[in-house]
């Protein structure tokens, strides 16, 4: 049985079809990269997987660990082990990062039939995971993402991932807006979270992220369909020859 299986997925936003028949099989522990120019449907795919309102699936199916994902609410998907690291993390004034995370961690633990963490064990866990990502203690106490730099926000996304222990992590352009140092810290964090029980779908526009997070498979997305799939050598081809090799005119592509 496949871990994640996407078959003939069509999805529209505001009546406009963005995904036009996606097929993807991700095995347990595998890391798949999805590359593509702006407007190819990368972010739409990540939102459809996590269940965002306004992203309508018109055809096809998504099955994750034997469950029909499309019938699940966003919080149920998280409970089942799906995690989305946002391209643009959301600021939530008035809710401290710790309160937010404690609520989230205990919600997914309850959904997974695990016991809730008490305040002491939660803090211990948060400190351990925070150290891996070089998260400053002060960032834990601040309101969620408020006043965080771009790099701190992305680091916070990976920190949340470490805390929520998903079995499928979708990283939506986690590299965008990061300088080299921040990219290194974030990628190292992601690599530490790789495990035989955890699959990842890494969505990126640029090849440079894949120097740090080396995928098992790469898929090239253009105009809502995969136009090429292969091993990590595909990234190097893209690096050398650009998306034009796959018949993609980057300048002409629509907005995301």
């Amino acid at each position: 049985m496949s871990f994640l299986s996407i078959k003939n997925l069509h999805a529209s936003v505001g009546g406009k079809e963005i995904l036009k028949g996606i097929n993807l099989e991700v095995g347990e522990g595998e890391v798949h990269a999805i590359m593509g120019p702006n407007g190819s449907g990368k972010s739409t795919l990540s939102y459809v997987l996590s269940g965002r309102e306004g992203y309508d699936v018109t055809e096809g199916e998504i099955v994750f660990k034997g469950q029909n994902v499309l019938e699940m609410e966003p919080h149920e998907r998280a409970g089942a082990g799906i995690y989305l690291a946002f391209q643009y993390p959301v600021e939530i004034p008035g809710v401290s990062n710790l309160t937010f995370l404690k609520t989230a961690v205990n919600a997914v633990r309850t959904a997974r039939g695990q016991e809730e963490l008490d305040a002491i064990n939660f803090l211990k866990f948060a400190r351990e995971q925070g150290n891996i990502l070089e998260m400053k203690d002060e960032l834990l106490k601040r309101p969620v993402n408020v006043g965080f730099s771009g790099g701190e926000k992305k680091r916070n996304e990976i920190f949340q991932m470490a805390m929520l222990e998903p079995s499928l992590a979708i990283l939506d352009e986690t590299d965008s807006g990061l300088d080299i140092d921040a990219l290194r810290i974030v990628s190292e964090g992601v690599n530490k979270l790789r495990s035989p029980e955890r699959s990842m779908v890494v969505i990126t526009h640029y090849q440079r992220l894949l120097d740090h997070i080396v995928p098992d498979f790469i898929h090239v997305l253009a105009d809502g369909r995969f136009v090429a799939s292969g091993g990590k050598e595909l990234a190097l081809e893209l690096e050398k020859e650009g998306y034009a090799k796959f018949g993609i005119d980057e300048g002409a592509s629509a907005a995301a």
Partner: peptide, 29 residues
């Protein structure tokens, strides 16, 4: 805010609890 609601729900927080967090943060000011 729908975006905030989705962000909280995508972390496993059920809608009712997500709403409560946002309301408490709002009035907490």
């Amino acid at each position: 805010d729908k975006t905030s609601m989705f962000y909280l729900e995508s972390r496993g927080i059920p809608p009712k609890q997500a709403k409560a967090l946002l309301i408490e943060a709002f009035i907490g000011e």
